[in-house]
Write a protein that binds this DNA or RNA. Structure first.
Lengths: 340, 340
DNA sequence: GACTGGCACTCGAATCATCTGAGTGCCAAG
DNA sequence: CTTGGCACTCAGATGATTCGAGTGCCAGTC
C-alpha cells in the first residue's frame, strides 16, 4: 500500500512542517528535500497518504499538514531519536552535579529540560511507594509540644507537630525515639505503617494514650507521604512558541499546568528510562489538549522507575530532538540520584 | 486645576475602562454613570484631564483610556479598597486552616490568591533572616556517612550529607548533637553562625578535624538557608484574560514568572500587612512589564513582615477589589502562621 | 506501469476602495 | 459654566478584486 517512497514523502512533510509551521506543497517539498522525483509524482503520493489518513489539507488549495496518525507513524517508524552532542551532555551533567539536595535536583532538572527542549517541562518528584524509612526523630519543643520528623531514603523530610494530652517525660521520649527507629528504620513506608501499629502495646499502660497520639500523627505523615505526588513545572514561557491561536492552544495547557492531577495523568505511568512514552494530540486523555503532545519517560534507576519526567508541547514539535533530550535528561538524573 | 467633578469623571473612566477594556467616550460615560451633566461638559473635562496627562486617546476619533498616571491617581485618591464579603472571608480561613505544614500553607495561599483575584499570584516563602534554630539533628547513616538536619522556627528543614574523613564514634555523635543544640537552639540563624564557629574548640584535639568538617557543612546549610528566597507562583492561566496582544502583554509576564529573581524585585521590600504596595505599569522596574501592575504586601505578623505576597496583572485591573483581596489574604495567612 | 509536464481550476489571503459611526473639538447661545 | 449643534476625523467593517500557491487529472514518455 505505502511503498518506501511514500514514507519518504511523509517523513519530508513532517520535517518540513515542523520546521516552518506552514502547510507544505509538492513543489517546495521536492525543492527542499532531494526526493529525486517530480512534484507531480509527489502529488500522487500525497493523495495516497491523505487517503490513508496520515496527512490532511487545511483547505482545498493549500499544502498538506500531518495528522496525529501521521506524526505517530513518523515517530514509530520514520525517525530515530536524536542523541545529544557531547557538549550538551557535559552541560547537563555539570548543571545537575551542582544540586545540593533532592528539591534542588528536581528544580534544576525542570529548568534544564525546559531549556534544552524549549518546551514546557514537567518533573514528578520521586515517588515514595518504594522508599524506606531512614530515620524518625522526636524533638521536645515545649513540654506540651513535640515535633516529629520523618526522613526517607529518597531524601525527603516530613514533619508534624503533636500536642500531647498531658506533659511528657523526656525519658519516655528518648525511649520512644529509640523504639520507633528500631522498629521502622529500613522498612518501606508501606510496611512501616503496619509495624507502627504494634508500637504502643510495648509501653506501659499509663503511657499508652500518649504514645498512641504520637503514633497516630506519625501514621498520618506516612500515608500523606506515600500518597503525595508532587510535581514541578517550568518553561511556561516557551508556550509563546506555540503559534498564534492562543485561545485554542495555549490556554488549555496553561490551565492544565495548574492542575497537578491532570499533569500526573498526562505523564502516565512511570516507565524505565529506556522507554519513551509519546502521546500525540488526541491520544492524550484530555479533549482540550488535542493540539498538544507529551513526551515522557521514567527515571530513578535502570531497572525500576521512581518517577516520571517529560515535556508538553505542540503536536508539531521536533520529535527526534525532543525525545533525545528527554531520554538523556532522565538518564543523567537517574545517575545523579543513584550516586547520592 | 482639577475640581471635584473632573475627578469624578476620571474615576468613571477608570471604572468603565476596567470593566469593558474599551476606550470610553463622553456619551457612554454619562449614560452609564449618572454624572448629572451633559456629554459636552464631560468632553471639556476630558480635555483637561488629558492635558494633565491622566488619560489619553489611542487615536483621534476614539474614546479615552487612563494613563499610568491616571490609574495612580485613581488608586491614591479616588477609590477605597474593597473589603471582602463575609462568605469570602470564611472561605479563606477554612481553606487555609486545612494546611498541614509550611509548604502547604504557601501552596494554598498561592492558589487562593490566584482564585480570588483571578490574576497571577506570587507568594514568597517566609524569609529566614529572622527565624530561629529550632533543632539540629545528626543522624548516622553508615559509619562514614552522616546526615545533618536543621529545623528552623519557620518550619523549614534543611538537610546535608557529610562524609567524614574517618569512621565516627557513635558516642561522639551523641555528644556533638547535644552540644550543637545547647549552643544553637533558639538563636537566630545569623547569630547561630557565629556561635557555631566556637563549637569545635570545645572538643578534644583528636576529634576536632571531624567536628570541623561537620560544622563547616552545617554552616553552609545556615547561609544557604538565610540567603535562599523561595517563591511560589500560581494562576498563570489567568493570563489569558489579559486581552489579545499576546506578544506584548503575556509573553513578558510568562518569562518573568520563570525568573524568581525578577519576581522578588517586583514584589519589592516586605511591608507590614496594613500597607499595600501598588506598582503601576512603567512604575515597575522592568521595561517589558510596562502594561503590567503589581499589588503586593507583606505578611507574617502585625508589626514585622516575614515575607511578601502579591499579584501581577494587567494595568487595567480592578484595583479596589484586587487590593482588598491581597490585603485580606495577607492578614489571614499571617494569622495562620502566628497560630502554628 | 510508473513517472512527468502541462493545464485548468480552486480558494485563502492580500490589496484596495468605500462606507459607517462613535467620538471629538469648537462655537455660539442659554 | 454649561449645553446643543455641527463639522470633522479616522479606525474598523464591508465588499470587490486580484494573486498565486497548490491541487487533480490527463495525455505523453521512458
Amino acid at each position: 500500500m505505502l511503498d518506501e517512497r511514500k514514507l519518504d514523502v511523509l517523513r519530508a512533510i513532517v520535517e518540513d512542517y515542523v520546521a516552518t509551521h506552514e502547510p507544505v506543497g509538492s513543489k517546495t517539498l521536492v525543492d527542499r528535500h532531494n526526493l529525486g522525483v517530480s512534484p507531480a509524482t509527489v502529488r500522487n503520493d500525497m493523495a495516497a497518504l491523505e487517503e490513508e489518513g496520515y496527512i490532511t489539507q487545511p483547505h482545498t488549495s493549500a499544502g498538506r499538514i500531518p495528522t496525529d496518525a501521521g506524526y505517530r507513524l513518523f515517530v514509530d517508524k520514520l525517525s530515530t531519536v536524536k542523541t545529544l552532542t557531547a557538549a550538551e551532555k557535559r552541560a547537563i551533567t555539570s548543571f545537575l552535579a551542582g544540586a545540593v539536595d533532592l528539591d534542588d535536583v528536581v528544580r534544576r532538572t525542570v529548568r534544564l529540560l525546559a531549556q534544552i527542549t524549549r518546551q514546557v517541562a514537567i518533573v514528578q518528584y520521586p515517588s515514595l511507594n518504594r522508599s524506606h524509612v531512614r530515620h524518625v526523630e522526636v524533638v521536645t519543643m515545649t513540654p506540651r509540644r513535640l515535633l516529629l520528623v520523618l526522613i526517607t531514603s529518597a531524601g525527603r523530610v516530613e514533619q508534624r507537630i503533636v500536642e500531647p494530652p498531658h506533659d511528657v517525660d523526656e525519658q519516655l521520649i528518648a525511649d520512644l525515639r529509640s523504639r520507633l527507629n528500631t522498629a521502622l528504620a529500613g522498612q518501606r513506608l508501606t510496611e512501616a505503617a503496619t509495624s507502627l501499629a504494634a508500637v504502643p502495646e510495648t509501653f506501659a499502660p499509663s503511657d499508652r494514650s500518649l504514645v498512641a497520639a504520637i503514633v497516630t500523627t506519625l501514621l498520618e505523615a506516612f500515608t500523606d507521604e506515600v500518597g503525595e505526588q508532587r510535581i514541578a513545572v517550568g518553561g511556561a514561557a516557551n508556550l509563546t512558541r506555540y503559534g498564534d491561536d492562543f485561545e485554542r492552544n495555549v490556554k488549555p495547557v496553561l490551565e492544565a499546568l495548574e492542575e497537578h492531577v491532570i499533569l500526573l495523568k498526562l505523564l502516565g505511568e512511570a516507565t524505565n528510562p529506556q522507554t519513551l512514552t509519546v502521546r500525540i494530540g488526541h491520544e492524550n486523555p484530555y479533549e482540550e489538549l488535542a493540539t498538544t503532545s507529551v513526551v515522557a519517560t521514567g527515571y530513578g534507576s535502570k531497572s525500576e522507575a521512581l518517577a516520571t519526567l517529560g515535556i508538553v508541547g505542540p503536536t508539531h514539535m521536533d520529535y527526534p530532538s525532543t525525545m533525545g533530550a528527554v531520554r538523556a535528561v532522565a538518564r543523567y538524573v537517574s545517575q545523579i540520584l543513584a550516586d547520592s
